[in-house]
Design a protein around this nucleic acid. Structure first.
Lengths: 138, 138
DNA sequence: GTTTTTGCAAATTGTTTGCAGACCA
DNA sequence: TGGTCTGCAAACAATTTGCAAAAAC
């Protein structure tokens, strides 16, 4: 516990973010539990803290690349501690439970997930970049 | 024009959806213009029709697999006519312009998109399925 | 003529903003 | 002490819902 708090402090310090109790609590929650969490899920696990603060903190964390925002197309932003290894997620279309997917090629992954017991697997893949026009403007 | 309307009528009939002017107009707009469009974009191109109706129509269309919902993580749902060929999209992080991506392997695709002039290409890939627990409940 | 769809207004939900007081450096 | 962070309330924006009138079958 002490070690985890120290770890959070280090991360915040490294990013030049001030080290408040709330920020520590949020960051620690995200570090100790893997998988993306909604603002409400984070809020429920942090004692005495306003939802607004959670919004503001995770936004700051995202800005400093400490956490990553995930989007599953249900209008709910979810945030995940950005560990060192690249992975994707699978969400159950019914219960919304999220699990981690380690593999990294699309069609093959779908097959593997089906072998693991998921039914009707599909995926959403979107790319983001900066287009030529915007590069020239900048 | 007449042909397109006939085509829309056929699609609606096939899905057992009643064939109203508004539905025809929305479907036709989506069929004639490729790429995903937001509710507002659709609404702007349809004459004399309420936004609510657009929401309701595209939802129905989605339910009947006539259109597909796309999500780029900006809290705006976009809908695209579901043609026969599988593809993905790339959105400029700055101007939000969306283009179609034909290739289908992630890391390779990023490289190809960079060669085409996009900068800082990244992607979001999420899977959806029905988990074992939910299969058993059903 | 019955059912479905539409338009309008109001409600809902996730998220953001403004401001005064509390906390951190 | 000076600047940043937090809590609260109010604002916002995308989407949904309720209901009566209009259109489709």
């Amino acid at each position: 516990m002490a070690t985890n708090n120290q770890c959070c402090t280090q991360i915040l310090k490294k990013a030049n973010l001030s080290n408040t109790k709330t920020r520590q609590a949020i960051l620690r929650f995200l570090m100790e539990n893997n998988g993306p969490f909604s603002i409400n899920e984070i809020h429920e696990h942090i004692s005495h803290c306003d939802c607004t603060t959670v919004y503001r903190c995770v936004k700051k964390f995202e800005e400093y690349h400490i956490v990553e925002k995930c989007d599953f197309g249900d209008h709910i932003a979810r945030y995940e501690y950005k560990g060192d290894h690249h992975h994707h997620h699978i969400m159950c279309r019914i219960c919304r439970k999220i699990e981690i997917v380690e593999y990294c090629f699309v069609k093959e992954m779908e097959k593997i997930l089906e072998k693991q017991g998921y039914k009707d697997v599909s995926h959403k893949l979107e790319f983001f970049g900066i287009c030529k026009a915007c590069q020239e403007k900048a």
